[in-house]
């Protein structure tokens, strides 16, 4: 009797899933920076649309672009927009879909100095160039009255693996220091003039936490989770700000007038009083012309959900939601998604 019940139940269960349309599985790969958010999205989106199975591998922004270009994944992800040369290599048009905003926090370990040390862009560049080597440098003290700075060596800790976090951080330094442009430049890996390298966000966070007198940079979430002191950075309006959800969204909002149609834009060092200057957009990359109608439709639906309903999951994970006008612009781009030159999304 019991067996019969179980049998009925199990066949009933099977029938339920078979009723739905065919299952679609989507492969994505790329940036490590938004990985916690994307894995949250994958589990949440499964509740909304159980028909779609998503899989995301956080292999790094460069890897994401490479795999998309070679068409081994259905979507790529990157913290830095693709360069013109990369777009040429991809041959077919690639859409940049901003998915969320994040920030890079400047972390430090100074016994006796609380979180919120005030640092200007010039000081930051000089420290990472290896020109300021002592914490009691008059330039630092001048902006931090009342804080007694120790006479300690500064140990710079940077990322050693190529990363989008590095790309965002050095993009900022490129905008604020002409010496940085001349000596170091931009990229996911650069030739650091000073300091030691840690592997991954956790490597840098671990190193800074261990070593008194060290300074480094990590994604905001890592600074929060590890409870490491992080600095207030002076923005273009001369106001010192810590990274926060509101400050990061403000950075994207203030850039919205300059956002080009293809949405490839850097939002570091943005204008405005409430702006945290080392903020960044992170992108999902898809080919405009899809080769599989089912998959193309599924990717489009997922991305539409991500830039609308998905945005409410950003805050708790230390990311910031896209500002409204950027969402509008992104919608326009998403509608371009096509199969056989026919639009896939009808919204």
């Amino acid at each position: 009797m019991l067996l019969l019940c179980l049998l009925i139940l199990s066949t009933g269960g099977c029938g339920g899933t078979k009723d739905g349309a065919e299952e679609v599985s989507l492969q994505g790969a790329g940036a490590t920076f938004p990985y916690p958010l994307y894995s949250k999205w994958i589990s949440e989106y499964h509740k909304v649309n159980a028909r779609v199975r998503l899989d995301y591998q956080s292999i790094g922004s460069g890897g994401g672009i490479k795999q998309l270009t070679e068409r081994t994944v259905d979507f790529g992800a990157s913290d830095v927009p693709m360069t013109d040369e990369q777009l040429r290599t991809a041959a077919k048009e690639v859409l940049h879909i901003p998915s969320a905003l994040g920030a890079v926090a400047v972390i430090y370990n100074l016994p006796g100095v609380a979180s919120g040390l005030k640092i200007t862009s010039d000081l930051l560049a000089d420290i990472f160039l290896g020109k300021i080597t002592k914490w009691n440098h008059p330039g630092i003290s001048a902006h931090n009255p009342g804080v007694s700075m120790p006479n300690a060596d500064i140990l710079v800790v940077h990322r050693t693996d190529g990363s989008g976090t590095t790309a965002v951080f050095v993009d900022y330094l490129n905008k604020v220091s002409s010496e940085w442009v001349g000596r170091v430049g931009r990229g996911t890996s650069v030739n650091w003039p000073a300091g030691i390298g840690g592997k991954g966000n956790e490597g840098v966070a671990g190193q800074v936490k261990q070593t008194a007198g060290s300074i480094g940079y990590v994604e905001l979430a890592y600074a929060e989770q590890n409870q490491i002191a992080y600095a207030e950075i002076r923005n273009r309006s001369g106001i010192f700000l810590k990274p926060s959800v509101a400050n990061i969204t403000a950075a994207a909002a203030s850039m919205s007038a300059q956002v080009p149609d293809d949405l490839r834009v850097s939002i570091t060092d943005a204008e405005g009083p409430a702006v945290y200057p080392i903020s960044a957009l992170t992108y999902i990359l898809v080919f405009r012309e899809q080769v599989d109608e089912q998959k193309g439709k599924a990717v489009g639906d997922f991305l539409w959900w991500a830039i609308h309903d998905g945005q409410k999951f950003t805050g708790p994970l230390q990311y910031a939601p896209l500002p409204d006008d950027l969402v509008k612009k992104t919608e326009t781009r998403l509608r371009l998604l096509s199969f056989n030159n026919q639009p896939l999304l009808h919204r």
């Binding site: 790094g60 922004s61 890897g63 040369e85 990369q86 190529g162 890996s189 030691i196 390298g197």
Partner: peptide
């Protein structure tokens, strides 16, 4: 002083080697 090994630099930079 800090140093670097061949195996480490390959592992660290290969993923993000962009060109």
């Amino acid at each position: 002083d800090p140093s670097y090994t061949i195996a480490s630099v390959i592992a660290n930079e290969f993923n993000e080697a962009t060109y």
